[in-house]
């Protein structure tokens, strides 16, 4: 079975024909060639495929594209504006929150979800909000610093 799916993707309205059994992850990567969202464990255990749906993080590997009808879906490609990195990306860049980079898009989207609902999160809040995302390189310390830095950048304060 298939249907026409209407959604807001990275701020733009899209209408696409999708099969009922198409995963959001495959819709993004295979149909739209938005390969910033990564396929990691492919079973809901690693968080590499995290995207935002209506501002809240979701695992795109376990979400059906057709379930996103009428919703706002955002991927890492949608964060930068006018060629400038978004604060959360800038934070990861400046504080070395990425090493191999595979988990980074998922961690950035989970962090963006956190910062949208809590502008000045504590370290505990950051750790809890990122607990669905696994990184095998960094040991998480630089990631937490990156999110703290991003929170300051978002608030328009100091930049280093």
């Amino acid at each position: 079975m298939a249907r026409l799916l209407t959604l807001m993707l990275n701020g733009r309205k899209r209408v696409d024909a999708v099969a009922d059994n198409l995963l959001l992850l495959d819709y993004l990567r295979e149909s739209l060639r938005l390969t910033g969202t990564k396929t990691g464990c492919d079973g809901g255990e690693c968080g590499a495929c995290t995207v935002l749906v209506d501002d809240r993080p979701r695992l795109s590997c376990l979400t059906l594209a057709a379930s996103c009808e009428g919703r706002r879906v955002e991927t890492v490609e949608g964060l930068a504006e006018g060629g400038r990195l978004a604060p959360v990306q800038q934070g990861f860049h400046e504080k070395l929150g990425a090493q191999c980079g595979y988990c980074t898009p998922g961690l950035i989207m989970a962090s963006e979800g956190l910062l949208r609902r809590s502008g000045d999160p504590s370290e505990t809040e950051i750790r809890e909000a990122l607990a669905s995302n696994i990184c095998r390189c960094t040991g998480y310390v630089k990631i937490i610093e990156a999110v703290q830095h991003a929170a300051r950048l978002r608030a328009g304060g100091e930049t280093r």
Binding site: G47, P57, L59, S132
Partner: peptide, 9 residues
């Protein structure tokens, strides 16, 4: 339950 993203779902 699970992790924060799983709980959103």
């Amino acid at each position: 339950i699970a992790g924060p993203t799983h709980r959103e779902m």
